[in-house]
C-alpha cells in the first residue's frame, strides 16, 4: 500500500482508527482507558486558564511577584502550585502595556504553555493563524476584533522551542484596587495568548 494518503471508500473512520490504537496500547499493558480518564481530569480541572489568570492578578497587585514572574515564569507558577511538564523548561511572561502588545503563535505546530493558560483552541492550531500571525499581525488581530492604535508596537512570539510564553495583559485602569480574585475572573485565555485586550485597556 502507498504511504500517500488516498481518500478511499475503505478508509477506516477516525473513530475506528483510535479504537485500533487503544486496543494495541491495551495489549501492551499501557492501560489506555485509565489514561483517557486521567487526561479528562487533567484537561478539564487542572490545565485551566484560571491558573494563568491567578498569576496575572497577583502580578497586577503584588510588585514583588510581578518581578519574579517576569524573571522566571516557571518558578512563579510553581509558587502558586501550578506545574509545567518537565520538557517545558522555561516560561516567559510578556507584559503588555498601552504602547506594547505581545502575541503568541506556534507556526510549526501548536505549542503553548497549556498547563498555565489552558489547552489551545482550534483557531490557534489552524492553518490561517499559524500562517498569518507572524507576517500580518496587525491585520490578523484587527480581523479578530483587536484594533490596535498605530502607535502600539507589536511583538510576535513564535514558540519554536519548549520554552513557553504567556502574556500578562494590561490591567484595565478601572479595575485598580479590585481584590485579587475579582481581578483573576476578568483574565481570559485569549488575553494571555495576546489576541484580546481586557475591557478599558
Amino acid at each position: 500500500m502507498s504511504q500517500n494518503h488516498q481518500m478511499s471508500a475503505d478508509q477506516a473512520s477516525v473513530l475506528k482508527r483510535i479504537e485500533a490504537i487503544e486496543s494495541v496500547m491495551s495489549a501492551q499493558g499501557m492501560e489506555p482507558a485509565a489514561a483517557v480518564e486521567k487526561a479528562r481530569h487533567t484537561a478539564d480541572e487542572m490545565w485551566v486558564p484560571a491558573n494563568g489568570a491567578k498569576m496575572v492578578a497577583k502580578a497586577w497587585t503584588d510588585p514583588a511577584y510581578r518581578s519574579r514572574l517576569l524573571a522566571d515564569g516557571k518558578a512563579a507558577a510553581a509558587e502558586l502550585g501550578f506545574d509545567m511538564p518537565p520538557h517545558h523548561r522555561f516560561l516567559v511572561a510578556l507584559e503588555n502595556t498601552p504602547n506594547l502588545h505581545n502575541v503568541i503563535v506556534c507556526t510549526l505546530c501548536s505549542c503553548t504553555a497549556f498547563s498555565i493558560i489552558g489547552l489551545p483552541p482550534d483557531w490557534y492550531k489552524d492553518l490561517e493563524y499559524r500562517a498569518r500571525a507572524v507576517r500580518e499581525s496587525r491585520t490578523v488581530l484587527k480581523e479578530m476584533g483587536l484594533d490596535l492604535p498605530a502607535t502600539t508596537e507589536i511583538k510576535v512570539w513564535d514558540t519554536t522551542t519548549d520554552t513557553r510564553y504567556m502574556v500578562i495583559p494590561h490591567q484595565p485602569p478601572e479595575t485598580i484596587g479590585w481584590p485579587e480574585d475579582k481581578l483573576a475572573s476578568i483574565v481570559t485565555k485569549e488575553s494571555m495568548i495576546g489576541v484580546e485586550r481586557l475591557m478599558g485597556s
Binding site: W123, L127, E128, R132, V134, G145, K189
Partner: peptide, 17 residues
Amino acid sequence: DLGGRQGFGTVRYGRDA
C-alpha cells in the same frame, strides 16, 4: 512550516472555544 505563507483567509476565531 506555515509561518508567512500567503493565501490563507480569515482566522476562524471564537472566544471561549
